[in-house]
Design a protein around this nucleic acid. Structure first.
Length: 344
DNA sequence: GCTTCGTCACGTCCTAACAC
DNA sequence: GTGTTAGGACGTGACGAAGC
């Protein structure tokens, strides 16, 4: 079985910047005391990715702040802005319970970070950091890796969503299970609810769990469902199950990811009906190939007919029939194009 | 500088289940 | 039957970031 750092190296060689390879132990079997906020968690994810196959080495890693800022979904960090995030990461404690060896470990995630702003006037700010010894040891030994969809993770807004998505990403690639049951305390630990906060389950559910699941379901390629296990009226455990979305829903999630986050709250609540759920179909067939969303539908349908002619055909068909130019109808139209044009 | 929006935490009220 | 405890729904306010 490939080691985590080998998989990270492989992804780096292939230039795959859509995922972050992380030790599954980090994504799942640990929890973070003094859990940082969403921005700091995203920064941590970016640092893991920047370190890549060297995440297990006792070296000082470096990255340009401009490169970190280039990721869609991150705030445009300045030196002043990144300092509190570094403080949050420095204060976060990794709690790892190795149940096989019955050993509980507590360790700093990132004990050392530096900002080199000597050349700030030219826009060159350099971030340098070392991962904590426990993290490095875990990364080196790890044979289980989690593939975390970076675009999705960076688009999430709350820390509860980020931590839940990170935790669940460690499970998505497992084929034999499709659910995980948490005790209420385990769930609090997994999503980083501070001690003494959201004391009642209803608060935890309303303010952390439900919004996190809703947000993840809107923009990721998986659908999460939470079921409550009760003893009487008291919730004793929460089962979270997951399923990969069908192609059409994945496209909707991708389209949401591509849209600006402003107004996402209303789209989550379903209260903003003015905003279309997909970009309009191009009026000019020659412009069709520049519309990523519709080109993706064309490919998903397995269409091998000429792209411009297919777009023109679909426009003609909607004009003749009065049907809407919806993704579902275009998907069906594309599927029929191979047959109509005699393409095997 | 003001407004808007989003996150987070917590309070209140009502209802329902449980223990005695 | 009654008191206690917990859940659900709803509302409010503090705070910070982004947009204008």
């Amino acid at each position: 079985m490939a080691k985590t750092i080998e998989v990270a190296a492989d992804r780096a060689r292939r230039g795959d910047d859509t995922v972050t390879i992380t030790p599954r132990e980090i994504a799942k079997s640990y929890h973070v005391a003094n859990a940082p906020g969403a921005d700091a968690l995203k920064l941590f994810n970016q640092l893991i990715r920047a370190a890549g196959e060297r995440m297990g080495d006792d070296v000082e890693h470096t990255a340009r702040l401009a490169d970190l800022n280039a990721d869609k979904g991150t705030r445009n960090h300045s030196r002043q802005h990144i300092q509190p995030l570094m403080l949050e990461l420095a204060g976060a404690v990794l709690c790892y319970d190795d149940t096989n060896n019955q050993r509980l470990s507590l360790a700093s995630l990132i004990p050392e970070m530096h900002v080199n702003y000597r050349h700030e006037d030219t826009g060159h700010i350099l971030i340098a950091w070392r991962f904590g010894a426990s993290f490095r040891k875990m990364a080196k030994k790890s044979h289980h890796w989690a593939e975390i969809d970076r675009m999705t993770l960076l688009a999430l807004r709350s820390k509860y969503s980020v931590l839940l998505f990170q935790h669940m990403s460690a499970l998505f690639k497992l084929t034999k299970v499709d659910s995980e049951t948490f005790t209420v305390q385990d769930l609090r630990d997994a999503i980083g609810v501070p001690k003494g906060k959201l004391k009642r389950f209803s608060h935890l559910n309303d303010q952390a769990l439900k919004p996190a699941i809703k947000e993840i379901n809107l923009i990721s390629r998986f659908t999460l469902t939470a079921s409550l296990h009760k003893k009487g009226r008291t919730v004793t455990a929460v089962m979270i199950s997951w399923a990969e979305k069908p192609a059409m829903q994945k496209r909707k999630a991708k389209a949401e990811l591509d849209r600006h986050s402003t107004g996402r709250k209303h789209r989550l609540a379903g209260t903003d009906e003015r905003i279309a759920e997909h970009p309009p179909f191009p009026d000019n067939p020659k412009m069709f190939r520049h519309s990523n969303f519709w080109v993706q539908v064309y490919h998903d349908a397995g269409c091998r007919a000429d792209m411009t002619m297919t777009a023109q055909g679909f426009i003609n068909w909607t004009v003749a029939t009065g049907k809407p130019r919806s993704p579902q109808l275009f998907f069906n139209f594309c599927k029929g194009e191979n047959t109509r044009r005699g393409i095997q």
